[in-house]
């Protein structure tokens, strides 16, 4: 049966999932350099072993309230279309497999956040997992609307 392997992480009380093949690595939060005049959701850039990569603050991106950095905070480094960027999350929870059957399309009115970002909703028993649409996280339609 077709299934997906996902890395899941948390933002506040919500749980999110991204395709494991997109995840390059997970790191603790290094010093982040702010980039003036960049989109508000871009927290800044970090040094990833000699490469400079941008970091998106997912809380800002999803319009959630900001939260102090904790011991659990991490940056998930993602690869998408050959480009590398990081997303800052409150904590990484686990790696799990999910049957395609248990993935449902995103609800029309998505959990208080822009439904652009959501690829679908996965169900594991009582848990709801929001599957992210990576191409919208950095750039994509939403960014264009904002910058226009």
């Amino acid at each position: 049966m077709a299934e997906e392997q996902l890395v899941t992480f948390s933002l506040g009380t919500e749980e999110f999932g991204v395709d494991i093949m997109r995840v390059q690595e997970i790191i603790r939060i290094p010093p982040i350099t702010r980039v003036p005049k960049a989109q508000a959701y871009v927290e800044g850039v970090i040094n990833l072993r000699g490469n400079v990569i941008p970091v998106v603050n997912l809380r800002k991106r999803f319009g959630m309230g900001l939260q102090e950095e904790t011991d659990l905070s991490r940056i998930v480094v993602l690869q998408f279309n050959g480009k590398v960027f990081g997303v800052r999350v409150d904590g990484v929870t686990e790696v799990l497999r999910l049957d395609n059957d248990s993935i449902e399309p995103p609800p029309p009115v998505a959990l208080g956040m822009d439904s652009h970002f959501i690829r679908g909703v996965g169900k594991i028993g009582e848990r709801l997992l929001i599957l992210l649409n990576l191409d919208q996280l950095m750039g994509g339609v939403v960014q264009n609307e904002q910058t226009a």
Binding site: V35, P36, K37, A38, V42, V45, V52, I53, P54, K83, V84, F85, M138, G139
Partner: peptide, 11 residues
Amino acid sequence: LGEYLNGLPGI
């Protein structure tokens, strides 16, 4: 700065 952040004014 990579493709995502290219072309920022002043940087």
